[in-house]
Amino acid sequence: MRTLTLSDIEFLIFAVRWTLLLSALAFAGGGLVGIIIALLRTSQQPLLRMLAIAYIRVFQGTPLLLQLFLVFFGGDLLGFGLGPWLSAMLGLSLNAGAFLGEIWRGAIQGVPRGQIEAARSLGLGYGPTMGKVVLPQALRLAVAPTVGFLVNLVKSTSLASILGFVELIRAGQLLNNATFRPFLIFSTVALIYFVICWPLTMASRRLEARLAQAYRR
């Protein structure tokens, strides 16, 4: 056991970059999966819709921690381990995809049906209808809940620590093992998460209020 020094706290604050990087990568991956799920979910084909519904149900109906473990140990299927980095990123992306898909489905369906009909009667195919007419309008509806979901995503990256990935929480645990000051260390960790998440929460709330106001007019 040794005493906690200023450089330890510095170590903790710098570990936040891994949390942020993992969040960003998982958001990018999740965004990719999410847009596919949202498009499948709003498709005209019942089979594609069912596929998307099943995906969402499964990922929202099981613990994220378990999904991460399955990806982590599922690497064995391929004959090589994925390691904490890749499995955390992949697991979080697949999970975020389900939630973002559901959020964005709502946004797509929030665009008035007449817009699609108008685009179609102008002779636009599925691609241009979605890309040029529906999605740009859906984007506006999607921003507030997506920012809100980011808070969840940042918090979720903490579970990567259980796979052995050294991000903020794992750094806190390592530090605690050496210095045994759990109260101080974990409250600092909590504070750092709060500093990241709270502005996002506030931004999401403000965006939501602004959107509600725009629609009241």
């Binding site: 918090k155 903490s158 259980i162 806190g172 759990p182 109260f183 974990f186 998460y193 709060f194």
Partner: peptide, 18 residues
């Protein structure tokens, strides 16, 4: 709502005894 559940359980299990 703005901190992970994992940190909360660590605070309670490891932090509170101190």
């Amino acid at each position: 709502r703005n901190t992970p559940f994992l940190v909360q359980i660590f605070m309670i299990f490891f932090g509170l005894p101190t």
